[in-house]
Design a protein around this nucleic acid. Structure first.
Lengths: 188, 188
DNA sequence: GAAATATGTCAACGATGCTGCCATAAGGGC
DNA sequence: GCCCTTATGGCAGCATCGTTGACATATTTC
């Protein structure tokens, strides 16, 4: 169970200290060039899946992000979307307008607050969003088919830990991942 | 153990069937929304480190990538850089020109083939590239300090596996990671 | 010497960020 | 009802970084 590993905060210091001492290089240890570069290559190919599929529809990466989150959280407001994407409303509006015009997304006045706009995917919006998600999921499926059993849970922990600390709880809640992070798991 | 872990054999079970009925368009299992979204958030914050540091120097993300790889592989040619970055020479030239003008990178005629240009970081180029790499490495260090012992090697395996199959060997060679991936030996 | 190769460059365009500013509509406090 | 705040929309302009296409130059190779 993921909660088997819900306790401890002390190892942090030791590991970091060991890492620092192990490397003669100034500052804070030998740069992790391998991980730095792998983040670049892995992300590039990962988003490539979505890019390639969506270009058939004349939609770009920005459209995809909006469609994805609207599909994932139907009823999302503009403000919530801006908070998730961390872009300006002008940037959002440009792509959102396309999605509305082309009937991938529809907007209705907020239920509680009619100043707000709640966003919903249309039938074709859902289909497209799911098509992309499945394509991306196939990449993950191929990946984990080659890795050991806990690899998927480990990847989730790793990626969540990579998120800025101040954002981590929000992200964890959004993606539905249990915030294992604050209290890591199976120690040595 | 982790019930969140996808079991390939069980994936075709009840959960997916429920999904299929609820939604007519199902391809290959439940989309891994968590991982899809975590890739986005993790990469966003990861590159944010570099972006924020480099904006003090008037350099953008594209400049950073070039500087990074030139620093990592001194003597790189234009063609090799294009192959790594997968952009056009016009895009490269724009940022490379800035780096040359501002003395972060220098170029010399190729040793064997004088048509080529070999690129080298200057002293200040090395310093800047290393500063960024260390900043990014600190994020990784914080991450792994919270995760179990093998987490770093696992992350490397995961990210490398995320790379397109056709690119994986090249990437593995570039980052110096052993291509564990091609031969899925460490199964279990 | 001709062809292929490695690179540089000009011009235009496209996607996606940004800032600044102003407009509109609805909610809330008085 | 008046007024301030909030949620959103829209216009104008700009920056970064990617693209294609066409052409120039130097060098290697055949």
């Amino acid at each position: 169970m993921d909660s088997t590993q819900t306790r401890r905060t002390a190892l942090q210091g030791a590991a970091q200290e060991a890492q620092r001492i192990a490397d003669p290089v100034v500052g804070a240890g030998e740069p992790m060039f391998d991980l730095i570069e792998l983040m670049f290559f892995a992300y590039r190919d990962f988003v490539g899946d979505a890019d390639h599929l969506l270009e058939n529809f004349g939609l770009g990466r920005a459209h995809h992000r909006v469609l994805h989150f609207v599909n994932r959280r139907p009823g999302l407001t503009i403000a919530e979307l801006l908070e998730i994407l961390k872009i300006t409303k002008q940037s959002l509006n440009r792509v959102l307008k396309d999605l509305l015009d082309q009937d991938y997304v529809e907007s209705r006045p907020g239920v509680n607050d009619r100043r707000q706009r709640q966003l919903f995917p249309t039938a074709q919006g859902k289909t497209l969003a799911l098509d992309v998600a499945r394509l991306q999921s196939r990449r993950f499926a191929r990946v984990f088919a080659h890795l050991r059993d806990g690899a998927r849970a480990d990847a989730i922990d790793f990626l969540l830990a990579m998120v800025d600390a101040g954002e981590r709880d929000k992200v964890a809640a959004l993606v539905g991942a249990r915030p294992v992070l604050a209290a890591p798991g199976p120690r040595r």
